[in-house]
Design a protein around this nucleic acid. Sequence first.
DNA 1: CTTGTACCCTGACCGC
DNA 2: TGCGGTCAGGGTACAA
Length: 275
Amino acid sequence: MPELPEVETIRRDLAPELEGRQITAVRIHHADIILDSLSGLEFRRRLEGRWIRGVDRRAKWLLLKFDDGLLVTQLRMTGRFAIGRGAVPPLAGFRHVAAEFDLDDGRTLFYDDVRRLGGFLLLTWSEWAREESRFGPEPLATGFRASDLGDALRRGRAPVKNALMDQSRVAGVGNIYASEALHRARIDPTRPVSDLTDDEIRRLHRSLRHILRSSLGSSGTTFRDYRAVNGRSGSFQTLLRAYGREGELCTNCGHLIHRIVQGGRSTYYCPGCQH
DNA sequence: CTTGTACCCTGACCGC
DNA sequence: TGCGGTCAGGGTACAA
């Protein structure tokens, strides 16, 4: 479900609660959320007793770092977290709790995931290095220049919308912010990446960073399922100009926003001003 | 190598 | 009310 701004919002919520805490007990209610080949028993055995030294993010993945490795969380479409005290999750909406992690301060971290597409990987540092190397650069990193975006995108002839969502080119961009960044940059999402000019790459670089930063400032986009920790909603949905606005008027030029399908996912764009 | 498609899973919604 | 079809902020395995 969440893209970079949503996962970063969750990270900021979780970090002060989890850093310095020890995982004292783990309960797995649905084994299919263990995304590596570990059995539930092995997963539990390796996790219990670990101290959480830091909570980080890479692309759309959340990282709980220990001394000797890390727990990688992929929320995919419907993964959520809540922290509470006692056996019952603190939110009525947590009807599909798939895992619980007891902490040494008496609280519990609950992971809820209706569709169970998300889950966890328990990795050593060297295993993580191999996984991590598949990601492209972080678009909000201070050193991420327009030329870096150009290098990442202008390979092959894929439509630019699909290329933006390719995590090996740029990390953290998903279906909502790919549409929004292209709309703001006034670039047709179906354009092959090899045809983009330097000026278009610069516009896309500025737009992408603007959109991601703005959304982060609004704690992300709560369009359907996404919530930050303990049910907190984002508010960037009120500022979306293309995504989900099929049939509405374009704020740039007044034409109708269209919906098309690319790679099996909806793309929203304005044929009037995106070329 | 790159690109496209099927699939994982459940629930909400829409038209008949 | 029921039923089938479609869709959903993702990622992976596989085919072409």
